[in-house]
Design a protein around this nucleic acid. Sequence first.
DNA 1: CACCATGTTCCTTG
DNA 2: CCAAGGAACATGGT
Length: 281
Amino acid sequence: MPEMPEVEVLARRLRPLLRGKRIRHIDVYRKKSLRPTASTEFQKKLSGATFADVSRRGKYLLFKLRPKTSGKEITVLGHLGMTGRMFIALKKERLPKHAAVVFDLGKHNFVYEDYRYFGRMSLDLAPIELLGPEPLSKEFTTTFLATGLKRSRQPVKVKLLDQSIAAGVGNIYASEALYRAGISPKLASNKVTGEQTTSLWCAIRETLRDAIRYGSTVPLKSMSGKSDTLFYYGGDGENRYSKRLRVYDRAGKPCFHCGTKIQRIAQAARSTFFCPHCQAL
DNA sequence: CACCATGTTCCTTG
DNA sequence: CCAAGGAACATGGT
C-alpha cells in the first residue's frame, strides 16, 4: 500500500470516518508494532481520547486526538511499512490473522494489520523531523532538488528513495517518475543536468498527483471481499486504469512509447524498471 | 529449495 | 565527519 499517494488517499478516507470517534479500549496484539512506545503508555494515553483529525507527512499518517481529560492534543504517528493496512470494520467481523493494534470505537473497530510487521504506530514523532519537503508543496523547488542531487554519486533512482529529497517517493514512483522524465535510473545523481532536474521535478509531481487522483476515483476494495480495507495498489489490470503504471512490474513488456522491452535491474537491492531506449544513459 | 515483494534503520566499510 | 553498501526486521507468494 504504502507510498505517498496511497497514504494520502488512506488519510482522506480515514479522516471523516475517525473524526469525533472516541476510543473505548485498545487491544495490542503485537507490542513491537508500537516501538519505541510501550504498549502500557500507548493504551493509557489513548483510552478515552477522541480522534480530531487525520493527516499525512511523507509516508507517515498523523492522528490528532483530544485526550480524555483536558490537556494538550496527542499526535500518533502511523507508518504502513511494506504491507500495513488500516481500516474500519464492524466489531462482529473477524480480525485479520496479523492484526497488530485494534481500537475499539464502540460499534466499530479501527484495525491496523500488517503481516510483515515493518510498519508501526507510535507516540514518537522524531521520524518526521528528518523528512525533506512535501513534493507537491511550494517548499519543494527545482533548486532544492538540484542541491540534493548534486552532492551524491549514487544512481539517481537510488537517491530518489532518500526521504530527505522528496518525502514520500518510494520504489514504484521513483521508477515511474524517471520514465516520465526520460532519465536513466543508472545516471549518477551529480551528473543530472539542470534541464534534466527540471523535467524530473515535473515528473515527480505529475506522477504523484496522478496516483492520488487515481486512488481518489477508484473504489478501494478489500482483498477478502468483506469490509472495505481502504486499500489500493496494483499494476496492469484489465480495467481502464491498466496504463496507470508505465514501467513498474512490466519487465519484458513493451514500452508504451516506443515498444522496446521494459527492463528490470537491481539497484541497492531493490528492483528498478525502465525503458532502455527512452531512458538511455 | 530458490527468489521476489509498496520501507526503514542499524552496522560496517571506505 | 560523511557516503555508500549490505543486512536485518518478518511473512508470505510464486
